[in-house]
Write a protein that binds this DNA or RNA. Structure first.
Length: 874
RNA sequence: GGGGGCAUAGCUCAGUUGGUUAGAGCGCACGCUUCACAUGCGUGAGGUCACAGGUUCGAGUCCUGUUGUCCCCACCA
């Protein structure tokens, strides 16, 4: 038998084990009609991405679930993949081109895409390699990419179907425009923040009079596109002006004063400049009053020809110049500091310009309805369920989804325009001949689709949809989707309505939502703050298992968590503990014919640890089923460290070091059984170290990955015997506590006098009691008097303990100690007594509870009697 | 304005459908070279479960309100 290394050194085996798993095809999903499928779709990380703590937690949670299910015998598919991340990637490549002194326009679409693919080939796999370091057990042989052939076909099909039913349309509407990325964005891709700005007051002269009307704006440059000033119809101040014409300064335009309920008379001056082309509210006013919509910005955020002499100026430069000119004209009234919510590009942070533009949209109302219903009807369940409310909130208030992007890297919109007859043609296949006029002069729409359009199809596009592939039939719908709450509007929601629309089924039955990983001070980890911690560095230092465990312990589902290295250390210490406990068992088993558990004549301590193991198996299995990963991890750690290491291993030592070879073989049988099951319980959380240790177990076969997850066996519950044995533990703890309380040196063995009716239990465990309590002898007596007068005593469940400690005993201190104990017990009697005196409690509480309370009361009364006697004896 | 989270030990957090004497890790105190492990072992101190009501035999847990704090969405030009 090979021997375990003395030191737990994850670096020495983690990579090797991962390679072995891959080589042996342990992650590969198989269509097996005899098994129940279990499918998880990995949220595809961006090809531009680097592994961060958020990924680490997300991946760990998925891997835990997936490994658990695999061990339970499901046919598991954990589908990995990466996302082309249209905007992020294009941004990156454009940056690179800038460094090379060129632009994408200069290269042209074809060359640009060639470069983008080359970049993808070179760097796109980086994140995949990083995921492997974590131990992710996904089926890499099925690695998908949102722009691969299969996903692209699905995108075309999906687009075509929606277009065909009129659920995709093209129109001029106010959209969010990023002047730096030079593309439209969806509402979800705009992040708002409170920014400091100004409120500028300008006077607009009324035509044919000396009157002026004062308006206020935060964006003076947009006045170039004003086509009206609006006031509230009930506002008496302006009633006379409604219908009059204003001379729009800095232009030669005349604009009307209109009345519209939209205007809040109490805000600003009560008069609002209306710029339909650059403000969503103004757009509405413009439509109601038939106003012209004048767009004044170019795609890059400079003023266009409509801006007259300001043409070509950057929006902020134009703002400055306009304020100056208004001052020169005497039409500037005042400026106030004003903080307001400003939209920023999710990707580059630039200030968003709302503007009217011709874009493609998905009609959301008909799609949102079934997506809401599916969750209402529990076809898909959120864990924790409060996130269903957030999901509803989004879908109930959703607006049409702008899906076109002025980008090249992505799925090109499958619509062609006939240059001759002007027909608009959407097709699954490329169109080369116009079906309307037969022309071959066709131009495909220049734009790409929002990345999330393809991500929305992920749960089925990866399985071959729209083909009815065997994979699709077997693995779809998927079982659980694991993702952060910040992704609900981007992705979860869109997969839901897409899945329902295209496949008629919900894409997943459960959605497990987790929170954000924050830094030690509770701040979001971010590039700009520079407070991110690299998971790979943590893995290098502590091992992947420690990182994984630290990311799920003490974390409640859906809650944010703070990452601290201290937590990783705590997890590392635990794993180190397991490592050493395993070494202990294996070193002792060496050269011994370990007795199989079925042939062991179980002792009370054996039954106790097996009982605890079974209770843990039950709890862990239940917790994992409910996705309570934090609770599951807690239970395992608690059992392994406290019950197994601190108690059972110590309890086993008299047998291991004793001279009864049968007893030793049997004890090793129990140790081996418990160790093996502990490793299996722990495997989903700490796959590497458990696999490594498993390989040394004489009883184990193959990989722990494919071993069966421990099953609760009611025959091994041994509930009563385990409870009785807890008495022995209590006894040992009491003796230790007594010794500490009188400053008795731990090495000094004490003579125990016990008044007990559990002589057999004590006798069977005498060796353990002597060893763990630090005693030289156990003697049964009828009363404490036998122990002499310089004794310290304590009452525990199975016995009255008397320890003669001679000079160490301070009679006054001992009396004080006993009195304090008496006080506590009397408190308990009081509590239990009043509870039992309550007739309502007796009548309404469950019988078991009442019985328990009665038993407790009896126990405490008995204790009181004994303590009183001891006090008297002093 | 709408929605949601959080408030439990010095710190970070658990607490599963309401039910033993409210837990863990870290930190702290005291002691320990006990032959797997000092990344350890033993013993302990430390909590009016934010506040005020209510429901209940019974509330950290459910309801209402208050305060503080954080997040998401909408948004007044």
């Amino acid at each position: 038998m090979k021997e375990m290394q003395t030191k737990y050194d994850p670096r020495s085996f983690e990579d090797k084990i991962y390679e072995k798993w891959q080589k042996n095809g342990c992650f590969e999903a198989k269509i097996d009609p005899d098994k129940v499928p279990f499918t998880v779709m990995m949220p595809p990380p961006n090809i531009t991405g680097q592994l961060h703590m958020g990924h680490a937690m997300d991946e760990t949670m998925q891997d835990i679930v997936v490994r658990f299910k695999r061990m339970q015998g499901y046919s598991v598919l954990w589908q990995p993949g990466v996302d082309h991340a249209s905007l992020a990637t294009e941004h990156k490549i454009v940056e690179k081109l800038r460094e090379e002194g060129t632009t994408k326009e200069e290269l042209g679409r074809e060359e640009f895409l060639r470069r983008a693919w080359a970049w993808k080939e070179q760097y796109g796999g980086r994140i995949v390699e990083q995921l492997k370091k974590l131990g992710s057990s996904c089926d890499w042989s099925r690695l998908a990419f949102t722009m691969d052939e299969q996903c692209s076909r699905a995108v075309r099909e999906a687009f075509f179907r929606l277009y065909d039913k009129g659920l995709i349309y093209r129109g001029s509407r106010i959209i969010n425009w990023c002047p730096d990325c030079k593309t439209a964005l969806s509402d979800e891709e705009v992040a708002y923040s409170e920014d400091a700005g100004h409120f500028w007051y300008f006077a607009y002269p009324v035509e044919g009079s000396d009157e002026k009307i004062v308006i206020a704006t935060t964006r003076p440059e947009t006045m170039l596109g004003d086509t009206a000033v609006a006031v509230n119809p009930k506002d008496a101040r302006y009633a006379a002006l409604v219908g009059k014409t204003l001379l729009l300064p800095l232009t030669d335009r005349k604009i009307p004063v209109v009345a519209d309920d939209y205007v809040d008379p109490d805000f600003g001056t009560g008069a609002v400049k209306i710029t339909p082309a650059h403000d969503p509210n103004d757009f509405g006013v413009g439509q109601r009053h038939g106003l012209a919509s004048i767009r004044i910005l170019n795609d890059d955020g400079t003023i266009n020809a409509e801006g007259g002499k300001f043409e070509g100026l950057d929006r902020y430069e134009a703002r400055k110049r306009i304020v100056e000119e208004m001052k020169a004209l005497g039409l500037f009234v005042k400026a106030e500091s004003h903080t307001h919510n400003v939209g920023h590009c999710h990707r580059c942070g630039s200030t968003i310009e709302p503007l009217v533009s011709k874009q493609w949209f998905v009609r959301m109302a008909p799609l949102a309805k079934p997506a809401i219903d599916a969750v209402v009807k529990n076809k898909t369940k959120f864990t924790p369920d409060r996130f269903a409310k957030i999901y509803f909130n989004w879908l109930e208030n959703i607006r049409d989804w702008c899906i076109s992007r002025q980008l090249w890297w992505g799925h090109r919109i499958p619509v062609w325009y006939c240059d001759d007859c002007g027909a608009e043609l959407c097709s699954r296949e490329d169109v080369t001949v116009c079906p309307k006029c037969g022309s071959t002069h066709l131009t495909q729409d220049e734009d790409c689709l929002d990345t999330w359009f393809s991500s929305a199809l992920w749960p089925f596009s990866t399985l071959g949809w729209p083909e009815e592939t065997p994979e699709f039939k077997y693995f779809y719908p998927t079982d659980v989707l694991v993702t952060g709450y910040d992704i609900i509007p981007f992705w979860v929601m869109r997969m839901m309505f897409s899945g329902l629309r295209y496949t008629g089924k919900v894409p997943f039955r459960d959605v497990l939502i987790h929170g954000l990983v924050r830094d030690e001070q509770g701040r979001k980890m971010s590039k700009s703050l520079g407070n991110g911690i690299d998971p790979l560095e943590i893995i290098e230092k502590y091992g992947a298992d420690s990182l994984r465990l630290s990311l799920v312990t003490g974390v409640a589902p859906g809650n944010d968590t703070r990452f601290t290295e201290g937590k990783v250390e705590a997890s590392r210490n635990f794993i180190n503990k397991i490592w050493n406990a395993s070494r202990f068992v294996l070193l002792n088993a060496e050269g011994t014919d370990v007795c199989p558990l079925s042939q062991v004549k179980l002792q009370p301590a054996d039954r106790w640890i097996i009982s605890r193991l079974m209770a843990t198996v039950k709890e862990v299995t239940l917790a994992l089923k409910k996705y309570d990963l934090g609770i599951a991890a807690d239970k395992i750690v608690d059992f392994a460290w406290n019950d197994f290491c601190d108690w059972y291993i110590e309890l086993s030592k008299p047998a291991l070091y004793g001279d009864d070879p049968v007893r030793k073989r049997q004890t090793l049988g129990v140790l081996m059984f418990v160790l093996e099951n502990t490793l299996k319980l722990l495997h989903p959380f700490a796959p590497f170290v458990t696999e490594e240790i498993y390989s040394y177990l004489p009883t184990a076969e193959g990989s722990i990955m494919t071993a069966e997850f421990p099953r609760y066996n009611p025959k091994m519950a041994y509930r009563d015997e385990a409870k009785a044995f807890e008495g022995v533990i209590e006894l040992i703890k009491a003796v230790r506590a007594i010794k500490v309380s009188v400053n008795c040196p731990p090495a000094k063995k004490v003579h125990l006098f016990l008044v007990t009716d559990q002589k057999r239990l004590v006798t069977v465990n005498k060796g353990s009691i002597l060893r763990l309590a630090g005693a030289s002898e156990v003697e049964f007596v009828d009363s404490g008097l036998a122990a002499g007068d310089k004794t310290v005593s304590k009452v525990v469940g199975i016995a009255q303990i008397f320890i003669p400690l001679g000079e160490l005993v301070d009679l006054a201190a001992e009396r004080a100690r006993l009195e304090k104990e008496l006080e506590r017990v009397e408190g308990e009697i009081e509590r239990a007594g009043s509870k039992l005196a309550n007739q309502n409690f007796i009548a309404k509480a469950p019988k078991k509870l009442v019985d328990d309370e009665r038993a407790k009361l009896e126990k405490f009364i008995d204790m009181k009697k004994k303590i009183t006697a001891q006090l008297k004896a002093l």
